[in-house]
Each structure stands twice: as structure tokens, then as C-alpha cells.
């Protein structure tokens, strides 16, 4: 089963929740860091890396011995990434999505593709758990191809915990789309509530089963509780606003290892998610 952990707002505790769920998981479990712009899971899990490979996107290359400068490739490109001049073809890689439309459109078969590296995927183990991480190269704009590569790497077997990037746009969609359950982590503040509403709109648009976990409970106000009650969204866990959790996090230590009394909270959360997924499967 694949559980994605997301939030509209950044810094609400997605990684904290994902890591702690991993640590209380009873069976085979994999942590997949899909926050490829800023992956942090590694700092807590200190994995033994078994291997890594480059993640690439295809970039068209024109063979000028065959090109007749007819301009079909430019017409085919919906991203406006190609200009055909009398003696050259310019391809703007920052606009190219690597879709292959230009390759198909070329009547002279003059366009081939080379693989352009944009990031890497590392995999290994942390204790009994599997670990996979995507990392986007600095200066690259499009993270979804790296995220999709991480998703392909982990597959669907066992328990897969996906640590999603913040926000609600394309990178998040790539991370949470087609997961079995999406846990939205928020904090009980006006910013947390506002961004939770966006995240809820996103998971609803994707048709994903979802629920909320509140981090730093006790801080702020009751806005998130009132909203979830009104919208019929379950709050599956409330992680207390405890300075010791923040300090453990600061130094890259896992809350359940540092503060064993938190274990039942995460065990209960993981069971609750499992039950929600099973109930849907049965229905």
C-alpha cells in the first residue's frame, strides 16, 4: 500500500510524520523521499546507500545532414520550445518537456534524442526499512521527472511511505497521484489552515482518500479542528507542541526513538490509515 504524506504549507512536519511512521511500521516498509528539491529524510534515517543512478529527460538533437528546415518540428511542439531558422534549429531545453512530438513530426527522421541529466535517485536501507530518495540538480526547474522516477523505483509492494514536496502544483501531484491514501499534515495556525484547504481541494480533485494529522497541537487556535469538522475530514492524529520534539528534529533524531512515549501515537496513526485503506478496498 502506498501512503503519501503531503501538506499545502511547508514545514508542517511531513518528514517528521513519515519518518516516525516508518519507524513504527511492523512489516516491510520503504521510505520514498519525493521532496526532490529539498530531500531531508536522509538526515534522520542515515541510510546505507546501495546504489544510485542519474535521472535524465530526453532532449531532441537535430542531425543537420538530414534536416531540410521544413519547420514541422516547430509546429508540433506545443511548448513553443523550437525555432527553425534558415540554417539552424534552436531548441530551448528549459521549455522542452521531452514529449517526443518533434521526433514524430520530422519527415526526414532528422531528430534523435539524447538523455539530459537533471537529478539522481539513490536507494538503500535504513535499519529494516528500504530507503529511496530523488535529488534534483540545483538550477533545474522541473522536478516531476525525478519524482516519477522515484515512484517507479519503489513500486507498490509492502508499505510505501511517500514524503511529498509542499504546495499543491505539479511536483506534489506527481508525488501523490495514484497513491492509496494521502495524509495531510498541518499545524493549527491561520497559515496552516489556509494551506490545508488548498491541499484538501487538491486531494479531492485527484479523488484520493485522505485525512489530517495536526502537528504542534496546542499551538495556535481551533480553526483547523472547526474546518475539519465542518468538511467531514477525519483528524487521525495530533502530535503535541513539545519543545523536545523540535530539539530532536533539529539534530536529526527521530521523535519515537528519542521520546518512546510517542510511539503509540504513531502506531495508532499507521493502523488507522491501514484500516481506512482496507475499508475502501472492501467497499
Amino acid at each position: 500500500m502506498i501512503v503519501s504524506i503531503a501538506s499545502g504549507k511547508g514545514g508542517t512536519g511531513k518528514t517528521t510524520v513519515a519518518i516516525n511512521l516508518l519507524r513504527v511500521a511492523p512489516g516491510e516498509a520503504v521510505y520514498a523521499d519525493c521532496d526532490v528539491e529539498e530531500p531531508n529524510g536522509r538526515l534522520f534515517l542515515r541510510p546505507e546507500i546501495a546504489g544510485e543512478y542519474t535521472c535524465t529527460v530526453p532532449l531532441p538533437v537535430v542531425d543537420y545532414t538530414k534536416c531540410t528546415f521544413c519547420g514541422r518540428c516547430r509546429e508540433a511542439c506545443r511548448f513553443n520550445a523550437i525555432a527553425v531558422l534558415p540554417k539552424s534549429v534552436m531548441i530551448f531545453q528549459e521549455l522542452c518537456h521531452g514529449c517526443g512530438a518533434c521526433v514524430m513530426a520530422c519527415p526526414e527522421r532528422a531528430i534523435s534524442e539524447r538523455e539530459r541529466p537533471i537529478g539522481k535517485v539513490s536507494h538503500g536501507t535504513s535499519g529494516n526499512a528500504g530507503f529511496v530518495e530523488g535529488l534534483l540538480n540545483v538550477g533545474e526547474a522541473m522536478s516531476p521527472p525525478v519524482i516519477r522516477q522515484v515512484r517507479r523505483h519503489v513500486g507498490r509492494d509492502g508499505l510505501v511511505l511517500i514524503d511529498a514536496p509542499p504546495g499543491t502544483s505539479c511536483p506534489v501531484i506527481a508525488a501523490v497521484n495514484n497513491t492509496d491514501f494521502c495524509l495531510l499534515v498541518t499545524e493549527p495556525t491561520p497559515f496552516g489552515l489556509h494551506d490545508l484547504k488548498l491541499a484538501v481541494a487538491m486531494v479531492r480533485a485527484l479523488g484520493l482518500p485522505h485525512a489530517v494529522a495536526i502537528n504542534r497541537a496546542g499551538l495556535g487556535d481551533r480553526g483547523v479542528h472547526d474546518y475539519c469538522a465542518a468538511e467531514g475530514i477525519e483528524i487521525l492524529a495530533e502530535i503535541p507542541n513539545d519543545r523536545r520534539i523540535a530539539e530532536a528534529y533539529a539534530h536529526g533524531r527521530t521523535a519515537v526513538e528519542e521520546l518512546p512515549e510517542l510511539r503509540p501515537l504513531f502506531e495508532k496513526l499507521l493502523r488507522a490509515i491501514g484500516e481506512r485503506i482496507a475499508a475502501r478496498g472492501a467497499a
Binding site: 511548448f79 513553443n80 520550445a81 525555432a83 534552436m90 530551448f92
Partner: peptide, 15 residues
Amino acid sequence: QAVQGAGIQAAQNVL
């Protein structure tokens, strides 16, 4: 109306 690459295609048009 282009979402992106308007400048590239405008340049292509005048060329």
C-alpha cells in the same frame, strides 16, 4: 495567448 515561448515564436514569425 501562448503559455510560454511567446518571444521565440514571435521571433520566428518576423524571421
